[in-house]
Nucleic acid binder design. Sequence first.
DNA 1: GCAAAAGTGTTACGCTTACACCCATGG
DNA 2: CCATGGGTGTAAGCGTAACACTTTTGC
Lengths: 257, 257
Amino acid sequence: MNVTTELHDFIFNGHLNYVPHLSIDCAVFGFHDNQLKILLLRSKYLDGWALPGGHIQRNEHIDIAAQRILKERTGLDKIFLKQYQTFGDPDRLKTQSSQYFLNAVQIPIPPNNWLMERIVSIGYYALVEFSKATPTPDLFTEECVWWDIHQLPALIFDHDHMINLALLTLQSQLHYQPIGYNLLPDKFTMPELQKLYETILDKPLDRRNFQKKIMGLGILEKLEERKSVGPHKSPYYYRFNEKNYQEALTAGLSFGF
Amino acid sequence: MNVTTELHDFIFNGHLNYVPHLSIDCAVFGFHDNQLKILLLRSKYLDGWALPGGHIQRNEHIDIAAQRILKERTGLDKIFLKQYQTFGDPDRLKTQSSQYFLNAVQIPIPPNNWLMERIVSIGYYALVEFSKATPTPDLFTEECVWWDIHQLPALIFDHDHMINLALLTLQSQLHYQPIGYNLLPDKFTMPELQKLYETILDKPLDRRNFQKKIMGLGILEKLEERKSVGPHKSPYYYRFNEKNYQEALTAGLSFGF
DNA sequence: GCAAAAGTGTTACGCTTACACCCATGG
DNA sequence: CCATGGGTGTAAGCGTAACACTTTTGC
């Protein structure tokens, strides 16, 4: 099935496979170059960028649907995913002079098409290891790339709102979700971990206090190896002790930033 | 329109007014007799109790739909309501030997009826002033009554799961949501407020420390009046200083229980 | 007068914060 | 050798937690 046929099939027969009136949108976070990144897709048909999203199969759990969608966009399995909010404004897809998304597909679409009706979207946020993801666009998009969370392009629909809320949720859950574990590679340095926390919390932290607190949690192992990273002392690598981390999370982490 | 006609109309024409595949369920909390209560409805057609719920009108914001549904069940306007989770297990309505809810309505219902399809439910929790609510059953239920959160009856579908998650959410948000303000009457005593916190957190708190911390937040006004409540010293009444409370909430309350 | 609950203050401990100097590395 | 960033410890202050006796009231 070529792309045009596939698109046509999705538009006219998608309701047979997917639950109408519902969609999923995911704010996928990564960390690279000391920046918090989010994965966005550039729309073929509208002037703006979109969160990765999709529909729920008729007999599929919504959490599984989110996993499936992100597997398609990143190549990754078993992504850390958390539902954070469902977006149910009846006018959320009517933006820019009340124009619906699919009016722009350049295929005549009847007004009673399943994609032309009101859609409530379930928002998830995801944490992935930047270097392991392979951003891949979908049928509706030209490209799929990481954007610095502080320098975002124009977004379609209510996706800016979705991102803002995802970020707030991430901040508020930093203390009891395995943020670092999911966003960082297996080995990382203390300054990298600190930058991650500083970036998400959007405030500077004291190096010595940060190190003391993090190490006090007993969830990190210091390795022998150091990372050579510039004209100065080389920082040690650390890794998470997965067992201790999981235990600490269920007990509630209690950093006190 | 009598009840039978109304029910018939809802079943066979409801999809014209309401968004199919979606519903709302609300965990409504109240506080009375030093107990945390939740509002439940006894089903006419199934053997168990249910959360107050309903469907979303085709052009209605989901938050407005939740308000409308609770207005019908309690008589109250402008209820404190917060979305906390969307429940999307494809089998969530298939309980007790795969029997769907509406098989029990004693009206023959075709399998492609909108109520027979998969339904994803958006969960809200609500905080109401117990004495102001007027519990009122709906079309599908015999009675609507408050239950002690620690002594619940058998529940239909996944409603026990919904309640558990609502409670966990309430606990975790106790520190930055206006819990007391919404659950207590205008005037209340310090022991009553403490019991509320103890009940939600499910642990005892020290009276002296509790009073110090709460008063330290500057959100309570002590009144002259005392409540005569038994063969012992009479506690003072307090009330919230609404202005200070709202300010404190946006700043983040930070009790430290 | 007695039982039952409310009002109130002080102390110790732990956690959080603030802060400065030396070391390693690359150019 | 110099600039840059990493590694490390201590002291002060604040908030939290622990704790007991007196007062009021109804029976």
